[in-house]
């Protein structure tokens, strides 16, 4: 592993290494930032379906709250995306 790292370091300029590291970090940032909201939205919608099934008369209120919850959870993914574009392109 160390030999491969030395080989890569020998063939790349520091600027190229920095660019590569920034690209990899940006990719990890975006990917990891999308996992949490994905789990969150799945849990949120699952619980909302359960609530609507148990109490159908409250479906309107549950759907309103669910929609806002989805939007708030999605904000985390958007923050990760913005960090990605700023790291990668700005």
């Amino acid at each position: 592993m160390e030999a491969i790292a030395q080989l890569i370091a020998a063939e790349m300029t520091p600027a190229e290494l920095k660019n590569n590291a920034a690209a990899a970090s940006a990719g990890y940032a975006y990917g990891l930032a999308a996992i949490g909201p994905g789990i969150g939205i799945g849990y949120l919608v699952g619980k909302s379906v359960e609530a609507m099934a148990r109490q159908p008369e409250a479906a309107g209120m549950v759907r309103t709250t669910m929609f806002l919850g989805i939007a708030f959870t999605e904000a985390l993914a958007l923050i990760g995306f913005v960090v990605f574009i700023l790291l990668k392109f700005a």
């Binding site: 309103t64 806002l68 958007l78 574009i85 700023l86 700005a90």
Partner: peptide, 24 residues
């Protein structure tokens, strides 16, 4: 301008949500 675009996305998304949530 990418910084302007990114910051606007986050700020308006959260700002509009909080505004609506307060009303709801």
């Amino acid at each position: 301008s990418l910084p302007a675009l990114g910051i606007t996305i986050i700020v308006t998304h959260l700002g509009l949500l909080f505004w609506e949530m307060r009303f709801i």
